[in-house]
């Protein structure tokens, strides 16, 4: 089955991931800009990072037949340095012009501080002015419900197109307000700290598959990109059809990411073929 991994931090992973993803049906990945594990000090560090994910990483993925797309952002954890954020934001338009950059992400909130909120507003505003897609990170664990509510409040106060905004890392306590407000919702599968494959399928069964993007992120911390494939198997073993699985794990990413014409992979439909027996 063909799968799209819409949230994947490739630079933190080895080529073995690409090889195994290719063998398990992954045809494309999208890499949001991420935190480096420490707070970066210089705008140039971000610029080189954006060059890495927009210029070099597509070549690494291509060796395994996987298309690689990316997003640019200053991570919410680094928003406490507003001067740095403003400097980096000035360079976004040059990356919007690159052939594999899909938009702004992952921006969002971590501790929901004043600086984080200002950074989120600046990121979203810039994206909307340039007709870009937006990927929004919501906080982890105990901060999730409050942070997601705050993200929705910030967006409600801005002129945005919800169809072009993906709010990621939703869980059972945050999915409904995100979908009710018209945004795309992302389930991020992690071994222990976020959603699990089984819980993701529970939510698909409860809320339906429309405007849902399932991903397994994978970064330099404890994470596993193949939780996405585990989720596909869990979905199928509960009796959902192959086409239903393709709608969730391939076609929905096509529908959201394809709003940016650079993402040219189209939804697919399974057809049965008559087999001639000699």
């Amino acid at each position: 089955m063909q799968i799209i991994q819409p949230h994947y931090h490739a630079i933190a992973r080895t080529a073995q991931d690409y090889e195994r993803m290719a063998m398990s049906g992954v045809v494309a990945v999208a890499e949001p800009a991420f935190w480096a594990g420490f707070d970066r000090l210089y705008p140039e560090t971000f610029i080189d990072y954006f060059r890495q994910i927009s210029e070099f990483e597509p070549t690494r993925a291509a060796q395994y037949g996987i298309r690689h797309f990316c997003w640019v952002a200053v991570n919410p954890k680094e928003a406490e340095n507003p001067v740095l954020t403003r400097e980096v934001l000035k360079h976004f338009p040059e990356f919007f012009a690159k052939p594999t950059v899909l938009g702004v992400g992952e921006t969002g909130l971590h501790k929901s501080t004043k600086n984080e909120i200002e950074s989120l507003e600046a990121h979203v505003d810039l994206a909307m002015k340039h007709g870009q897609l937006v990927l929004i990170h919501t906080p982890h664990l105990a901060d999730k419900a409050h942070g997601t509510k705050k993200v929705l409040e910030v967006l409600a106060g801005m002129k945005v197109d919800p169809e072009r905004i993906w709010i990621d890392h939703v869980e059972e306590q945050t999915i409904k307000p995100v979908l009710d407000a018209g945004y795309w919702a992302g389930f991020t599968l992690y071994p222990i700290t976020k959603c699990s494959p089984k819980r993701a399928v529970d939510m698909l069964e409860k809320y339906g598959t429309e405007k849902i993007l399932v991903n397994s992120s994978a970064d330099w911390g404890p994470s596993d990109p193949f939780l996405l494939q585990e989720c596909v198997i869990e979905y199928r073993r509960r009796g959902h059809s192959l086409q239903d699985a393709i709608e969730v794990f391939h076609n929905n990413p096509c529908r959201f990411l394809g709003q940016n014409p650079k993402f040219d992979i189209k939804p697919i439909r399974v057809e049965s073929a008559e087999v001639a027996h000699a």
């Binding site: 071994p191 700290t193 699990s196 089984k198």
Partner: peptide, 10 residues
């Protein structure tokens, strides 16, 4: 926490 959530979900 993860294991309890899995049980609750089941």
């Amino acid at each position: 926490r993860h294991q309890i959530l899995e049980i609750a979900a089941m």
